[in-house]
Computed example of a mutant assay.
Amino acid sequence: MKQFVSFQQFRRQPTIVVDSTGLGAALTLAHWRGAATPELLRDDTSAGSVLRALHHPETPGMEATAVTANHFDIDGFVGVWALLNPQQALRHEHLLRLVATLGDFREINWHDPLADHALQLVCWLNAEEKARFYEPFGAPARRRREDEASAEKFAWFLPRFAELLTNPEVGRAAWEPEYARVKQGVAAIESTATIVRRYPDIGLTVVRTPEPLPYYALFSPSLGTDMVLSIYDGQRYEFEYKYTTWVDLASRPTLPRLPLDALAARLNPLEQTPRHWTFDSITDTGPLLRLSGKELSKPQRYADPDQRPIHASSITPEQLEEGVVAFFRTGYAGITPKRYWTWAEIKAAGADLAPGSSLLEKGQG
């Protein structure tokens, strides 16, 4: 039998580290870029690596009885729970994979027969986390370390999760509000009011829909791509790199993130409103490019688009889409998709796109 220990305790005994990295781990099961996950166990999600490990119990390090993670999120939680409850986890493997993918990448195939159950579990985890503890990325605002504070979340959720796997109705009061909001968003995405265009050569999905939506609905058409350009009525826009390019994705090759300051430098001369295009670093988990307003905190940026203000631009939707597509086609010219990019390789790939470079000027011409 395995038990959860806080991240500060993991060096006191042989410990499996999930969705995190740490020197001295008996075994690392994480999709973080450069993590020491064994080749055979690599997966798109950390929970997926755990489930692979359960199929290979002979893996060195699997004999360790302690399990930890340095933060609480849905993917990491599912991985930790699965190690502590291996037989149940393997019985529900497909559902757990859906939960981890939806929680981390915010994408799911709504035609999967278990998609609704996965959404209910994710919404339950989200709701109870916020109600009983604090929102994702909220520990610093409370002057707490995430690796310490998150242990309280694991202690509460670990003994309660199994019941929701077999009977989600017991958590309906918690999961229903977000579930209903997401399902309404899914209906909007699947309606004639929404137009989706995919540019597979650059890994971009463009979603043109009337109003901002929850991520679980907004990103559902983006399966297999790594960037989303959201175009809303009133010339309101957001561009985002998905989390799929922050981690080591195992299932398919990807293109490296390009610096968004270079794209902002292309858009700002076109912008006729008093606002300017702002951007996050490519090392952020989900970098946003959007028109400026009050600076968003990390919890606000992580929250759903329909929970934050999105400002109107003078650039038309057609101009914006054409400009974004042209920028990435120029930037990715000569770059071949691959698996397991290093951060050094990613930064080198975008070096020629720094504002003021000849490549950027060429793209603006």
Rank of each mutant, 00 (worst) to 15 (best):
R329S: 05
F328I: 02
G323E: 14
S230C: 10
H276A: 15
T273E: 12
R257D: 11
R275N: 14
T283A: 07
D306Y: 10
F239Q: 01
R308Y: 08
S313K: 02
L320P: 04
Y241F: 01
A326L: 14
P299A: 06
E321A: 03
D304G: 00
T244V: 04
A312L: 11
G293Y: 14
R236S: 02
E295C: 03
Q307I: 06
K298V: 11
P256H: 02
S297T: 14
P269L: 12
T244K: 02
G323R: 05
S297I: 08
G286R: 08
A312Y: 14
T254A: 06
P256F: 01
W246T: 00
A312N: 07
E318A: 05
S281T: 03
V324D: 00
G323Y: 09
K294Y: 13
L320T: 05
D304I: 00
R301S: 10
T283F: 13
P253D: 04
A265R: 09
S314D: 12
L291E: 05
A250R: 08
A333R: 15
S281Q: 08
P269V: 14
P259G: 05
D261Y: 12
P253T: 07
I310G: 02
R257K: 05
T245D: 07
L289A: 06
S314K: 01
E322Q: 11
G331I: 08
D233H: 05
Y232M: 00
Q300A: 03
G234V: 10
P259D: 12
P305L: 04
L320K: 04
A250Q: 09
E271T: 05
I315H: 03
T278H: 08
G331P: 14
P299Y: 03
T285D: 11
G323D: 13
P337F: 01
E295H: 10
P317C: 05
T330C: 11
V247F: 04
R329P: 03
I282S: 13
G286E: 10
P309A: 00
P305V: 02
D284V: 08
G293K: 11
Q319H: 04
D306G: 04
E322D: 10
E295W: 09
W277P: 10
Y302K: 04
T336L: 13
G334K: 15
K298C: 09
T245I: 07
R266C: 15
L288E: 13
V247G: 00
K298W: 08
I315L: 11
Q307Y: 03
L249K: 02
A264L: 15
L258P: 07
Q272F: 03
F328C: 00
T273Q: 12
R266N: 14
D280H: 11
Y243Q: 01
T330D: 09
L289M: 13
K338Y: 04
G323Q: 08
V325G: 00
R252V: 08
P305T: 02
